[in-house]
Design a protein around this nucleic acid. Structure first.
Lengths: 233, 233
DNA sequence: AAGATTAATATGTAGATACATAATAATGTC
DNA sequence: GACATTATTATGTATCTACATATTAATCTT
């Protein structure tokens, strides 16, 4: 008998989305003005606006000033994923985490690494190779370069106990990150450390971070055979 | 002499983020109340709230009622990526797009496919194999299953001219999508159609979509050697 | 002192209002 | 008719107000 509760912006969003999915508003169609929708639902324009913002971010609709709101013609599949620190990832699977430092040396950056950072000239950087283990099995082999010009303090860090991965996450927040996925055949070091035979297809995550315009670090993280990355849409 | 313009919520977000990056607010620290920040910046609490919502979504801070706002201890790398329809992806690279239907048959779903959909019993579905080409070179080989119970109309579609990929995107909006990435060695069909030799490491994108609880389609899209997926954080 | 009740507090949400901004449509000028 | 100017319109943003909700802190019972 009583009016249950007022509509929240998430309710409005879900109602509109339902209409798009059910083809009440088909691909390319123009939606009514926020104000009209607000009136129909008996809520404020602000609430509709908030809902629309979300739908727009998800990629279901496109909005333009004066132009109005349109259902996208070719909706893209937009998904987000989290890359936690490796220890946490392993522990969340219920496995025992271990970490092993393989090497730690100053080296000149080769061309591919310079390309990742977008720098023109080779620089001396700290190169760290390490292995992450889950239940005593190789999990991820990482080959990392750290720019010591802006991160000199990592030279004092105890990278035998704590992985560079964790140290950096804890001590070096970044303002920009590039992530890149691809597949590669196991060879040499990666085959050796992940204890698989050469040629096995391996999943690779490459991450490069900056603070402002200064490079922080770039990692090539090669996962053990069978690794899958999940994302939710 | 004049007050330039009022602060927008994005300004506030950027200012707070800058403070987190510069360690004014370190990991785990508690931030001032929204209201105090608002007063400091000379804006309304609503504006600060909007900024904080964003920072919270990005994963930089955590908020709790009464508990206040805290900088996250182990910030995860959160990135989003778009998977456009393949034609668009190819054309955006400036290449000529082509598409080739390989096969199209009704088949019983095998166990791995049932697992992707989360169904218990085998079902007759439409299985479509196709090849996407960029500048006449194999680009993506897809092996797709479509549930014809809820999508009977695809049986009438002309899948020689238009790819199932595009037809589905245009005609079957989904409410949920699972995305999964992994690496596999080329073998048999994948090696043949992507014209590479067996064993080559290939990047695989597996996507499954539902509308409500009803399965729509699942695809295994195997990319040609060298393919990389980029995401922006 | 343990447990239940109540108050205090910071964030979350909705609404009303006012104005800003971008894009389109209408109009006027030559 | 081509081009510049001016309205119109729908979304974007900021503020104030009021109340909701979750969580912690304080207080009262027994």
């Amino acid at each position: 008998m009583n009016e249950p509760t007022r509509l929240s912006w998430t309710d409005v969003r879900d109602k509109i989305r339902a209409r798009i999915l059910s083809r009440t508003y088909g691909p390319g169609d123009k939606l009514p003005r926020d104000e009209d929708i607000a009136q129909e639902f008996g809520c404020a324009r602000t609430t509709v606006h908030r809902a629309m913002q979300d739908l727009s971010q998800i990629g279901l609709v496109e909005r333009k000033r004066k132009g109005g709101t349109h259902v996208r013609l070719d909706p893209v599949t937009r998904a987000t994923f989290d890359i936690p620190i490796t220890r946490r990832e392993v522990e969340q699977r219920g496995s025992k985490y271990d970490y092993q430092l393989i090497s730690r040396e100053m080296e000149q950056t080769p061309l591919p690494v310079m390309a990742r950072f977008g720098i023109q000239r080779p620089v001396e950087m700290l190169r760290i190779k390490a292995l992450h283990l889950a239940d005593n099995c190789p999990y991820i082999f990482e080959d990392r370069w750290v720019d010591t010009r802006s991160n000199a303090d990592i030279l004092d860090a105890d990278l035998i106990r704590e992985s560079a991965n964790e140290w950096l996450v804890r001590n070096k927040p970044y303002s920009r990150v590039d992530v890149r996925f691809y597949a590669m055949n196991a060879e040499g070091e990666s085959a050796e450390y992940l204890s698989t035979r050469e040629g096995t297809a391996l999943f690779v995550i490459e991450r490069t971070t900056w603070i402002g315009d200064d490079p922080i670090t770039t990692v090539q993280a090669v996962a053990a055979p069978g690794y899958q990355l999940l994302a939710q849409g």
